[in-house]
Design a protein around this nucleic acid. Structure first.
Lengths: 233, 233
DNA sequence: ACCGATTGGTGATGGGGATCACACATCGGT
DNA sequence: ACCGATGTGTGATCCCCATCACCAATCGGT
């Protein structure tokens, strides 16, 4: 694991992002009922198939959302950053959690019980709307995931798409063509539905074609367009 | 197409299912604003990528929900029966429709404009909740789809799972081990992410193993357990 | 009853990637 | 500085299934 860049960037407030884009009144109401806890790396917030207990809101850190098949193989749905709620759909619908949530670094996470969330949703229309928006967003991103993973389907295309996607999250950073590689090859494989070895080989190939350069855990993508040209292929 | 079983079962009311599980007051309000139309087979209600105009509620008939990849291949997300709303997530989030909706048989469909839905949601808390529930449901089913399609991944396993799924929708029918085959092999392929030929071969194989019998467009699955045993494999 | 169009069956072939098997690198702790 | 654990590089092999190529069967309309 090349991770553990333990955040030293934010020490202004105890918790940097307040409750996301929620109006202060609602945020306060949430804060009243909620419980914020620190978790170490590898903590499982909830597991696929469990009955919903409540929602978890990532305040600091990163959480891996994954599902696993009958044969034991794992697919990572997405990596969730601070500001995002987890398990909302399950809590609202009362069905079991659709995926497993596991911290990828030491994280601070706010928990809100199912009953409290539902009550507050009834009280605050904005909260209900916020919840609904987030679920739709998750739905949309899952649909994209399906399309990308099933209709591709060369592994190199999927990997290229993943890398380009990472670039897109970095547009505001100082070096927008750099990406911190916070995942093992195995995990990358679990994101694109292929094996560790294939990822290794593909990355090597990309380097040989000068599509990427790697120094330590930093990836540089000099020519984004070249990488994108693999995708339509 | 072996379809066109044009429903002769329900002629009691002009539209059988009223607005699903909605309380009458809300249903009436919807009916006020909504517009119900008859569509022929093959009509496209909305297409992946379009800006959301409103939601479509299937009152009678069946609608195919699909996405398509850059290479033109198609994946059918699910077949939607009467009583279900379509395009809700897109309308609520304001993002583009995530999939394409196309009628599979002559259908009656109620359309409700985006602005009207949002206004009514604000007025009727139950409606907002209903919407949210449906989106969560779609989200859950999409997650299942991902798991089944990516983590399987022998094609026979996927097909077996599909067949068993069809059985589950029939539990209340007179012959719970029979399934009306309303899809072409090509479409089945698009549901499990494989080719027409593979589906043909697999079905032939299943017949040879006496896992299924087919007469006309009726499938009989004599031993559900045997079929399920393919899934864990 | 005809004929074009859509659907279904089945062989042959090839390729992409999973899997197995090792060796090397790197990390983290005591 | 050592050593086990974890992650990475790369060859060899093999098998599933997409694809191509045809033909048979069935449907649907006039």
């Amino acid at each position: 694991m090349a991770t553990h860049v333990v955040n030293n960037a934010q020490k202004l407030t105890p918790v940097d992002k307040t409750f996301c884009d929620l109006p202060p009144a609602v945020a306060d109401a949430l804060e009243q009922e909620a419980l914020t806890t620190s978790y170490p790396t590898g903590a499982v917030l909830f597991a696929e198939g469990q009955a919903p207990r409540g929602v978890f809101i990532v305040r600091r850190g990163r959480v891996k959302l994954s599902i696993c098949g009958s044969d034991g193989r794992t697919l990572i749905l997405r990596i969730v950053d601070a500001g995002c709620p987890l398990g909302v759909a399950a809590v609202v619908s009362g069905r079991q959690y659709e995926a497993t949530a596991e911290t990828q670094e030491p994280s601070e996470i706010t928990f809100l019980r199912q009953s409290d969330l539902l009550r507050l949703m009834r009280l605050h229309g904005e909260l209900a709307l916020w919840v609904t928006q987030h679920i739709s967003q998750d739905y949309a991103s899952t649909c994209r995931e399906i399309r990308d993973l099933i209709l591709s389907d060369s592994a190199s295309e999927k990997l290229a798409r993943l890398l380009v996607g990472w670039l897109d999250q970095n547009t505001k950073s100082k070096y927008p063509s750099q990406v911190k590689l916070a995942l093992t090859h195995e995990e990358i494989g679990q994101m694109i539905g292929s094996s560790r070895e294939t990822v290794s080989r593909l990355l090597a190939g990309f380097k040989k074609q000068h599509l990427i350069q790697q120094t330590g855990s930093t990836l540089v993508i000099p020519d984004r367009v070249a990488l994108e040209s693999l995708i339509t292929a």
